[in-house]
């Protein structure tokens, strides 16, 4: 078993499932011969040919709209939107067609598609290439939003997305595309969606995050452990629909919760988690719910990016504030 990066795990899952399921089509800009600008679809065109791996013209709405038609016809489109910053023209098709086709035809037509896109900041890219707008999609009923945080999860969750009968947005945190390697076995086992993953167990405080921020969150947990604090670290993974049960159970145990997100603070997924915990587990809380998030500003250009992104220090500060409360 080779140790592979997250992007290689995406590639592995795609190749693996495309061999099993002929209805899967991969298309988008530069995904064919070039293998994708991040090499996510490397080698797929050579393996599966023109009819299953297609380079499209440069038109995101078209890519998404095509997926709607193909999915209604029984294919499993796996389009790539090259960057989340470019998804907005496709947003129309995703929100007005893909999300609701099953509902408006009362189950007659469905949309088993997986839309992949790299998202998030931290690679010093030009403007518009670093946003985290997962909350916009999570807010639309009928969609699912899945974010892997490491190569193992990228493989298992992507398989699950590919097999899901409903439209899934598979957001890949590009900052950690190659940061870490895992030994991933190509065993075709899909991970469960709508389920959180627990990466560390402890009694004193719960840290919840997803995507690239899991990296910083786990580093913060290690620091806290040096102070004798034990930490429950939870990876949400499926942002919508979210598994609240695991988070509730953890808060019941620790009484303290800090949510870490790269996306802007207001109206983000952290807000939803905080509201749910306050509603259902108020009696378990020993301190207010803390949030570490990006600022409510436009994502800065590369020079200021480092000041925007939540760091291990910011997480530690917030965690300690919550630990020390009352």
């Amino acid at each position: 078993m080779d140790a592979i990066t997250l992007i290689e795990a995406v590639n592995l899952a795609l190749a693996s499932e495309m061999a099993r399921d002929e209805s899967i089509l991969v298309f988008g800009e530069d995904v064919g011969l070039n293998g994708g600008v991040f090499r996510a679809t490397d080698g797929l065109h050579a393996k599966f040919g023109d009819d299953r791996v297609m380079d499209t013209p440069l038109a995101e709405a078209m890519i998404a709209g095509l997926s709607v038609g193909l999915a209604a016809q029984g294919f499993k489109p796996v389009p790539e939107i090259q960057f989340m910053g470019f998804v907005f023209p496709a947003f129309n098709q995703i929100a007005t067609a893909a999300a609701r086709m099953r509902n408006r035809t009362r189950g007659r037509l469905s949309q088993p598609m997986t839309i992949r896109m790299p998202y998030g900041g931290g690679i010093h890219a030009p403007e518009h290439h670093s946003e985290s707008t997962e909350a916009l999609f999570a807010h639309i009923p009928g969609l699912k939003v899945v974010i892997p945080s490491n190569p193992t999860r990228a493989y298992g969750l992507l398989l699950a997305a590919l097999r899901d009968p409903d439209p899934v947005l598979f957001l890949e945190p590009k900052r950690v595309y190659r940061l870490v390697k895992h030994e991933v076995e190509d065993n075709g086992e899909a991970f469960p969606l709508e389920t959180c993953f627990i990466d560390r167990e402890g009694d004193d405080i719960t840290l919840v995050s997803w995507g690239a921020m899991m990296h910083e969150t786990l580093l913060a947990a290690t620091e806290l452990e040096k102070d004798g604090v034990t930490v429950d670290v939870i990876d949400v993974a499926t942002i919508a629909p979210m598994d609240m049960g695991t988070i509730f159970e953890s808060v019941r145990k620790t009484g303290r919760l800090v949510i870490v997100q790269e996306a802007p603070r207001s109206g983000g997924i952290g807000s939803e988690i905080a509201a749910e915990v306050a509603e259902h587990e108020i009696m378990s809380l020993l301190a207010p719910i803390g949030r570490v998030a990006g600022y409510d500003t436009v994502m800065p250009y590369a020079k200021l990016e480092g000041q925007y992104m939540p760091s291990v220090e910011r997480i530690l500060e917030e965690a300690r504030r919550i630990l020390d409360f009352s």
């Binding site: 078209m62 709209g65 095509l66 709607v68 038609g69 193909l70 999915a71 209604a72 016809q73 067609a97």
Partner: peptide
């Protein structure tokens, strides 16, 4: 675009 998808 839906038509184009079905046609594809």
């Amino acid at each position: 675009l839906h038509a184009a998808g079905v046609a594809t």
